[in-house]
Design a protein around this nucleic acid. Sequence first.
DNA 1: CTGTTAGCGCGTTCAC
DNA 2: GTGAACGCGCTAACAG
Lengths: 339, 339
Amino acid sequence: MVTIKDVAKETGVSPSTVSRVIADNPRISPDTKQKVREAMERLGYHTNIHARNLVAKSTKAIGAIMPSSANKALQNPFFPEVLRGIGSVIHERQYSLTLSSGETEQEILEEVQRMVFGSYVDGLILLYSRVEDPVVAFLEERDFPYVMIGKPFDRLEEITHVDNDNFMAGKQITNHLIARGHEKIAFIGGSKDLFVTRDRESGYLAALADADLPHHEDYVIHTEFLKSGGKEAVEQLLSLPIRPTGIVVTDDLMSLGVLSTLEESGVQVPGDISLVSFNNVYLSEITRPALTTVDINIYELGAQSARALIERTVDKTIPPKRIIVPYTIIYRGSVKEYP
Amino acid sequence: MVTIKDVAKETGVSPSTVSRVIADNPRISPDTKQKVREAMERLGYHTNIHARNLVAKSTKAIGAIMPSSANKALQNPFFPEVLRGIGSVIHERQYSLTLSSGETEQEILEEVQRMVFGSYVDGLILLYSRVEDPVVAFLEERDFPYVMIGKPFDRLEEITHVDNDNFMAGKQITNHLIARGHEKIAFIGGSKDLFVTRDRESGYLAALADADLPHHEDYVIHTEFLKSGGKEAVEQLLSLPIRPTGIVVTDDLMSLGVLSTLEESGVQVPGDISLVSFNNVYLSEITRPALTTVDINIYELGAQSARALIERTVDKTIPPKRIIVPYTIIYRGSVKEYP
DNA sequence: CTGTTAGCGCGTTCAC
DNA sequence: GTGAACGCGCTAACAG
């Protein structure tokens, strides 16, 4: 391994001078810099991060924490996409990205502790937002830099987070259905404990209220993500005396399940029932019909969180902030004028 | 930050003793160990990896390298799934996982160099296999531990890699179609430069030959992954004077495109055309009809590669090996007896 | 502008 | 069984 000393010897300067050249210290003469850089190149010098980190107390690395049920979570195209966003800025800033997951909550907490205490990383991105998350508690207690994708359970103003305006998105996409003549609109969401669900649901309700449309409790269903959930939800909906003509689904993956169950039941989409969805994951343009869905800009969610985090790790005094990533509605074939 | 010295002071022993306790050195008396461990606990000691790595020359970290077109690649559910597999053993062995990607080939090569030279990681997993990969060349030249998922371009015996028996899988799944009475069977694969495609195609051809079925060149189509490719392929197939009654598709994602295009064209699956696919990504049970597909055990692909890599990093003298992960055929609804 | 010195936190001799 | 001393590769004062 070529060290700073080797380069120093080769150039006839001291190790610290070489170090300064690496840091591009302005007080080093251009000549020396030139000379040293040539030698580094020639010898194939590369700085050893561990030596650097040991003294510099900064790792230029950040960690991404997966939800505990990494099992199911990673099935959602959402994650690769956030990772892609995070990766892009990580790469651009010459940082490293450490991925961390665990089967249980306890495991992931331990992982996080290991990373924090061992100073593996300068900061953490939480790829999920849970109620009463011990990881958050730990991070807060240690005052360790982190940002969260989604909405914090509490202390909204104290935790830097990156989110969409899910209320507005929910409202707007519901309005789309209303504008197309639909009056009996159902809502299928994930767990009530998730803020995404809550916010989108509130938006949905607001849209109904604004349009003076009645709100049937039977039309709001909370279920698990993925097919099973989607199927159950649809079955419930179809068994109702008065079927909805439009459905708002909070996740493309769920929509997939909804779609297939609908088709199995001989219900045409959008002929009999119109569907709008969320996320605009690649799936949504592949289904038949392609989904009208809210593009929440997952990539940006990742990129912004990485930016915010790096900012914070560089300057710890930067106050926490909330970043709202704009959404766009992508109109495709799953909605039809009613009747 | 609590260091080894603090613990030493607290316990009244020397730093080296503490160090030995951490390493669980057998020559330390149980009493001292007990005492020291209590102090570590009490003080909240955690070893600083950078200091450790600096002297130990091992990082207990491995890196996963994404394909250069991380853009598209991450859209395939394949990746999250391998990552999940890798993550599980990483976690189990208390290693860390660093994710690395880049837009261009050049960028990813630079990333790899940075990781290798800066001794960020003990080894690397290549999540893709490309022809004439400069990354492989670099790694070989430096004799840096790595394993590849898929099949190496050359030097098969010198590169540790984890793969499926794609030839047999291709043959067997084609045989399934044949056994169900199909004789006009088409093949839709990805780029010819990919070994996955080649191997599966060879298997397909072998099955045809074994059954004395004629092989039409028009029935073999190479195209890009994802919808566009799938659509084009299907369009070509449908325009043929004699349409196939069965199709072998090498990727579930492609199958999705194939399916939808078929439906758009009013062709029933499996009524008119039967479909078999590869990967058994969650998608395949969601589509309508659900896909009969080869489960290549992506998770295992990841887990095994991580195991093999860690083994190699621990003992560099371990000879390269090829690991074949078994596949299973999952029978679902996309195949029907012909006629 | 540049060299010298002194650690960063830990593991590893080599003594005792 | 345990301590003292040294060095891993690098950066950061302090000199000059």
